[in-house]
Amino acid sequence: MNIILSNASSDPIYIQIMNQIRQSILNGELKAGDSLPSIRQLAKDLQVSVITTKRAYEELEKEQLIDTVVGKGCFVSGANKDFIREQRMKRLEEKMMEVIRESKELSMKQQDVIDHMTLLFEEEQTP
C-alpha cells in the first residue's frame, strides 16, 4: 500500500491517510480480508504520530470499511459488494453536486451541463 502525504494539502494528515486507504478499498486495490499495516508500522513508514494513524483507522472502522481484531490487526472489512457500491455512489453524488454548484456559478443551463458531460463521457470511452 502506497500512501503519499502532502504538506501542501489543506487536509489534516489523518484525513489524507484515510482518503487514500478508502480509495484503495473502494476501487478494489484492497480486497475484503486483506490486512493493513499495523498502526505503529504505518506511523513509522509515514513518519507521523501513532495517534494520527490510529485516528485514520478509527474513522475507517466507523465507515465499516475496515475491521480491527484485537491482537491480530486491522483488515479490510468483509462488507458486501452492494455496501461498497453504495459508498462509491455516495462519493460520486457528492462530486456531482460540486459540478452542479460550479455550473450554476457559471450560469450554465442544465442541458449545457448534460451535453458537456456526455461529450466528456464519450471522449473517455474512445481508445
Rank of each mutant, 00 (worst) to 15 (best):
N19R: 11
L5P: 05
E29T: 14
T53L: 02
D115W: 00
E123K: 14
C74P: 02
R22L: 07
S107M: 09
S107P: 01
S107I: 05
T68G: 01
Q41Y: 02
P12S: 14
Q125N: 07
L36Y: 15
D11L: 10
A43C: 11
D11S: 08
K90F: 15
L106S: 12
L65Y: 13
I21S: 07
S103M: 02
H116L: 13
M18F: 10
Q87R: 13
K44M: 05
I4N: 13
S107W: 03
I39L: 03
V113S: 01
S9L: 00
Q41R: 15
Y57W: 09
Q111D: 03
L30Q: 03
E61C: 07
E93G: 09
A79R: 11
Q110P: 04
A79K: 04
Q87S: 10
V70K: 15
I4P: 01
A79F: 01
T68W: 07
T53Q: 03
M96V: 15
L119C: 07
L120K: 14
L106Y: 10
L30M: 11
K44E: 14
V76I: 09
Q110C: 00
V99N: 02
D45C: 02
N80S: 07
D82P: 01
E102K: 13
L5M: 01
A43P: 05
V48Y: 05
D34R: 02
